[in-house]
Design a protein around this nucleic acid. Structure first.
Length: 297
DNA sequence: AGGCAGGCTTTTA
DNA sequence: TAAAAGCCTGCC
């Protein structure tokens, strides 16, 4: 079904933003999907941002799979039934939120770098992904690059996720449940190339199965409680916890700080970043700055 | 107490 | 060979 989206929505920028690891770019005859070729920038004066009308993705999220094609002009082909769009994908892509309005609040005088970043990276959205999937994914992400993360997530899913068939008849594996992951042996985890993170993944599955942490209850918890509960998990530090908060719990004020963000804050905000000004959307601002800084490198 | 060095698995460039 | 959207442990 064709959906018209007038707000910021750029599949390539979302895919490249480091929040989702089970998106597969479909049209390989186009420019290379990741990395090398920096894509052409859109006019910063343009009111909203969408893609070029030339990209398509196969997206696995939780137990679902979607083929999505950018037709250009803000038109998108969602290969699913309307009720599936309404009940799952509309929420997944956070289509009720107005990102253009959030961008519009950024003050060019006091925050020139953030303003520039948002102009160039508009089209990014914070996906509403499953908190459990994000917890495991970001535990796996530590000290690794994106291709390696994708590989491990896929191997884990194939090892103990439910096998399903997508709308084009191709098979895929749902992200595993806590019980399924907990049942994996140390050797099976190690086969997924988790390295020393294998014991963290196992501990997280144990904690969720035992009810030591209730991720659903954190959806509406304040940030202090959220971070305290998440960082209490073995192998979960401040960085991973803030990624789970932002990408899995949709706490849009969560602000992951990694080595790159440390450089940005030191370079652009030596006197401190103005968290009050853009609350509760600091996490969205972070995404613009992170993406733009890396694209300029 | 709180900060810091060193180690950890594996892949990627 | 170093670096990769880190975290844990032990030492001071």
């Amino acid at each position: 079904m064709i959906i018209q989206i007038d707000d910021d929505f750029d599949l390539d920028r979302i895919a490249d933003s480091g929040q989702c690891f089970r998106w597969e770019r479909l049209d390989p005859e186009e420019e290379s999907p990741h990395g090398t070729g920096r894509r052409e920038r859109l006019d910063p004066e343009e009111e909203s941002s969408h893609g070029t009308g030339r990209s398509a993705y196969r997206i696995i999220a939780g137990a679902e799979c979607l083929y999505l094609t950018d037709l250009g002009g803000g038109r998108y082909d969602f290969e699913c039934a309307r009720d599936q769009f309404e009940s799952f994908w509309k929420n997944y892509f956070d289509l009720e939120e107005n990102y253009r309005a959030i961008r519009g609040r950024i003050d060019p005088a006091s925050d020139p770098f953030l303003r520039e970043a948002a102009d160039h990276e508009k089209g990014i959205r914070i996906l509403r992904q499953d908190p459990w999937e994000m917890l495991i994914t970001f535990i796996i992400s530590q000290n690794r690059n994106i291709p390696a993360i994708r590989r491990s997530v896929d191997m884990l899913s194939a090892a103990c996720g439910e096998r399903k068939t997508d709308s084009r008849g191709r098979e895929y594996y749902a992200f595993p449940s806590p019980a399924a992951l907990r049942a994996l042996s140390e050797e099976e985890l190690s086969d997924c190339r988790l390295g020393y993170r294998g014991k963290y993944v196992h501990a997280a599955a144990e904690a969720v199965c035992a009810g030591e942490i209730d991720l659903g209850s954190l959806l509406h918890a304040d940030e202090e409680k959220t971070m305290a509960e998440l960082t209490a998990l073995f192998g979960v530090g401040v960085k991973v916890a803030s990624c789970v908060s932002l990408f899995g719990l949709h706490h849009t004020d969560a602000f992951p700080v990694d080595v790159w963000m440390k450089r940005i804050l030191a370079d652009q905000y030596p006197a401190g970043y103005p968290f009050e000004k853009y609350a509760p959307y600091n996490g969205i601002c972070q995404q613009y700055m992170f993406a733009w800084y890396r694209h300029r490198e």
